[in-house]
Design a protein around this nucleic acid. Structure first.
Lengths: 337, 337
DNA sequence: AATAAAAATGTGTTCGAACACAATCGTATT
DNA sequence: AATACGATTGTGTTCGAACACATTTTTATT
């Protein structure tokens, strides 16, 4: 159409230079006119995109949450395999900073085309992902959100809002609330910023709705029944009526029964659709779970990488996963996802 | 590898015949051995898949629900455009059976490669979709589920479970329940099986949990304030304490304020994240909404067709969308989806 | 004006699959 | 043994983009 050779058009499209201004203008105009869109099939065929992606996540055996995430990645692998994409999953011990860094370096050495990662350790993630950036390996994060990172996309939930949501459920389900509990179970909240964010949202809600409500934080570092009893005993005398208990981790099932028997009228809210928690829902010891969608998040993470690397599409910098409220009547529909 | 020409291999792969048993065996074994998978890019490039899909949905101007579905289809169109897929959306008046049939025939005449459809009218859908089947045009349904249809995939919710969910929320949020209401608003439940299914689930739940609770169904055919007041007046005298009102359509916002002022302690549950309902959540006149995910469902519908037609993938016959519980604290996360 | 160097443009091949068409092979018939 | 004809096998082109390499045009220098 512009009376130039395909080579010239090619140079215009890819800005490879060595094109006269005249030709450049002529071709550009026509490209715009005909709304030229490259044929992705031809592109991929030529480029022989055999994309190798890597994923760095905690051991899937560590708990139900990470095993769901693992499944999500594997599902994505199956779904995208036919696009010539391969995914190597590297796992690390999420209690061990050094292991995280070590595994990250292992991946870096293999120079993959893209990375999906859960940057659980703030400082080390910044360090390590800087190296990926230098190697021009794009990465997508999920689960933990670190604003300073230059990830192509960050997938996860608004944790503060998650705390607000828990508070609102207690507010909706109980009247005349005087005491509520926040229970940090199994981890040290000082090292886990996500717990603090959740608590802050939880407190914020009640501060707005009814500032006279007493909110008490209880830290239970271990999940064995003895420790749980010992620590809750310390509080029991002090508390008469507790309207709600908000467990900020996936360990609600460890404390639910104890809480329900000590504070009969309390609403118990926890996180994550792991088997033990589902059983709690069914038994009535847990009233609501908030679903963090590890499966979906992980799947989306891979999906974003595919969009980015295979289809060269723009992806959203931040993807907020919904905060699913789950009780015993709608749990099933979330489980097979 | 088999010492035969590409042509022969091609004939084996596509079972085009004209291949000696010997060559057939030799090639087949090797294909199996090397786990031959066709390159989808090369295939698509050659086949010049310019797939035309059609969608048949109610007018997007009819309400917020269908406008969301419309958006979902359009989003899918944008996302899959680069795969050479085009989607023509045909809309019909969902109060008019004849219009439905007419528009369906219009689509059939254009002989698209695939169809996404909401089979709102049972009998006519069976008829019309039989014709599509005869023309070997695969179709995917969403929103309404008709088991008799031979759709490649049916996307939607478990409506009975949806009713159970609404009941369970009232159960969790209110104690000493004596009266609850089911409100069918704006449509004749006799013609709308989905309303009946919802009610049946709702009743089932309370029958199990507390059979002494009185459940009353109220039909309000029009959504104007006068009709609403008139019909509710008839009931008001009869009812002292109402613990919950379950509106089975997207019209909760029409009655929420009236209900809340007449039955102070009642929990109002409705459907769908349309703007008016969101405002109800914020104002506190509506306590919970159950999200039917029109956007997501429609998007998934197109996505299934793409899997089917572009990538030749197997798709699930039935895809159950989750039953999202929405209150004012988690509405935002669902809105931008 | 001749020549060299730089700039611009054009050509041809490749990716893997699909398919039309051409070329062989094998067997039966005379 | 020559011929015919069906059965089988091989060849060459196409899809659209990417890129190496060849060719032509322009500009600068003497």
């Amino acid at each position: 159409m512009a009376n130039v050779s395909p080579g010239t058009v090619d140079r215009v499209i890819h800005n490879r230079g060595k094109v006269s201004d005249k030709a450049m203008a002529k071709v550009s105009v026509i490209l715009e006119e005909i709304q030229y869109k490259p044929n992705v099939f031809a592109q991929s065929l030529k480029k022989q995109t055999s994309l190798r992606m890597a994923a760095l996540v905690p051991y899937h055996s560590s708990d139900g949450f990470w095993s769901k995430a693992y499944e999500g990645i594997q599902k994505a692998f199956v779904d995208f395999e036919h696009l010539g994409v391969s995914i190597e999953i590297e796992e690390f011990n999420n209690k061990d900073v050094n292991d995280f860094v070590k595994k990250a370096r292992t991946i870096l050495a293999e120079n993959p085309n893209g990375l999906l990662i859960t940057p659980v350790f703030l400082k080390e993630s910044l360090e390590v992902l800087k190296e990926f950036e230098n190697s021009e390996i794009p990465f997508v994060t999920f689960n933990t959100f670190i604003p300073e990172l230059s990830s192509k996309s960050a997938i996860g939930q608004d944790l503060k809002q998650s705390g607000r949501l828990a508070a609102s459920l207690i507010d909706q389900c109980r009247s005349d609330i005087s005491n509520v509990l926040v229970i940090h179970l199994g981890e040290n909240p000082g090292n886990a910023p996500h717990m603090m964010e959740k608590e802050s949202g939880f407190r914020e809600y009640f501060k707005e709705s009814n500032p006279s409500i007493r909110i008490q934080s209880i830290e239970i570092p271990q999940t064995d029944q003895e420790t749980i009893n010992r620590i809750l005993n310390k509080w029991s005398g002090d508390l008469r009526s507790v309207s709600g208990a908000y467990v900020t981790t996936a360990g609600a099932h460890h404390v639910a029964f104890t809480i329900k028997s000590r504070f009969e009228d309390s609403l118990v809210i926890g996180y994550d659709l792991i088997e033990e928690n589902i059983n709690g829902l069914k038994a009535g010891t847990i009233d609501f779970l908030i679903n963090q969608n590890p499966f979906q998040s992980a799947y989306e993470g891979v999906s974003k990488l595919v969009d980015l690397l295979v289809f060269d599409k723009e992806v959203d910098k931040r993807m907020l996963m919904p905060l699913d409220i789950v009780n015993k009547e709608n749990a099933a529909a979330y489980l097979n996802k």
